[in-house]
């Protein structure tokens, strides 16, 4: 095609640049990792437990019913706290960018406070709310319509942890969503306004859907982070994974083994989330300028079959080609 005479120049066969430094680094890092691994494994091996060696105990507790119940609570807390965080975060971000100064300042203050104090303190605060408020009464003044609730019954431990984690997360999500909104080109807003769309419509139909691409990756990050942060609910005596392992450890003195069990489960859950995050990002990144990222399997296969060959050309984006099936009309 390129050559009018039809002669193709010979393909290049060159010796690739060697990287001996990489091999040395790999061996050094491998040796250090192996040593640390060995130390931990033997330490647990030599620990005496009711089940024999430490590893036997780890295997014993790994599928313990109480641990499973804890995992369930951890997952519930993660999902609910993230839901609170995302919904409230979107509202706060839109408020922050509102031309209404009251809205924007309320949002600023919220973020300032909830991002500026430790989550642990916030969980404790909700857990101990009854020290400040004995009961919560809502009603219409000068009438007999009043609702009365005891603070402790209104905010049980799980609710305290959920409020603490969720409200804190909302402050972070607000900043993430705000960054996403700002990343959408201003021309989009103008075009929508020129069509007569009001502020709410522009945000909901035009700006937010386009902001998703920027919002999704850090949100995945936040979810993974949240999964581990739920262990702080232990301080509010919520029976999630960390609390459960702690309970068993105090009864059996198998402290080290139970920490390993909890760590294994946290790792399993975050690994699943990581894989999920990869595919969600891939979905929302579709059609962006760089094309889709290869899955680890695809990369592995490509590495196997094209060891020393030049990297395959990236899939062409072909803007002019009718990538979309022709419509049925006409």
């Amino acid at each position: 095609m390129a050559n009018a005479v039809g002669l193709r120049p010979e393909a290049i066969k060159a010796v690739p640049v060697r990287h001996p430094g990489r091999w040395v680094a790999a061996i050094v890092v491998g040796a250090i990792a192996a040593y640390i691994f060995y130390t931990v494994v033997t330490a647990i091996q030599n620990d005496h437990t009711a089940q024999g060696s430490g590893w036997a105990a780890v295997g014993h507790y790994l599928f313990n019913t109480l641990i499973f119940k804890g995992i369930l609570v951890t997952l519930e807390l993660t999902v609910l706290a993230m839901a609170v965080g995302i919904v409230l975060g979107v509202i706060l971000a839109v408020m922050r960018l509102s031309p209404n100064p009251v809205m924007s300042w309320v949002s600023w203050l919220y973020i300032w406070f909830f991002r500026g104090t430790p989550v642990l303190v916030q969980i404790f605060f909700w857990f101990n709310l009854n020290l400040v408020l004995k009961s919560i009464d809502i009603g219409i003044p000068f009438t007999s319509f009043w609702l009365h609730a005891n603070t402790n019954s209104l905010i049980p431990p799980f609710m305290a942890a959920l409020l603490g984690l969720g409200f804190n997360e909302a402050a972070y999500m607000a900043e993430i969503v705000r960054a996403g909104i700002i990343s959408v080109e201003h021309g989009q807003t103008e075009a929508a306004q020129a069509l007569g769309m009001n502020r709410g419509l522009v945000m909901r139909r035009i700006v937010l859907p386009q902001a998703m691409r920027v919002i999704i990756p850090p949100t995945g990050n936040e979810t993974i982070s949240m999964l581990k942060t739920t262990s702080l609910a232990f301080t509010a005596s919520v029976t999630e994974l960390f609390t459960r392992q702690q309970q068993i450890a105090t009864a059996t003195y198998d402290v080290l083994e139970l920490l390993i069990v909890a760590s294994i489960w946290y790792l399993v859950m975050t690994s699943i989330l990581t894989v999920g995050q990869f595919y969600i990002e891939r979905h929302f990144g579709r059609g962006s300028s760089r094309g889709t990222t290869a899955t680890p399997f695809q990369r592995f296969r490509r590495m196997l079959f094209t060891f020393h060959a030049p990297p395959p050309a990236p899939p062409e984006l072909a803007p002019a080609a009718p990538a979309v099936p022709r419509s049925e009309h006409r």
């Binding site: 080109e185 021309g187 989009q188 103008e190 075009a191 929508a192 306004q193 020129a194 069509l195 007569g196 769309m197 009001n198 502020r199 035009i206 859907p209 386009q210």
Partner: peptide, 23 residues
């Protein structure tokens, strides 16, 4: 705001950079 929007809806505008909604 609502009045401004109503009036804008009666005027069409075409931009230099198209500003089509990419999604």
């Amino acid at each position: 705001d609502a009045e401004v929007c109503r009036k804008r809806s009666e005027i069409g505008m075409v931009f230099q950079h198209f500003n089509l909604f990419p999604h």
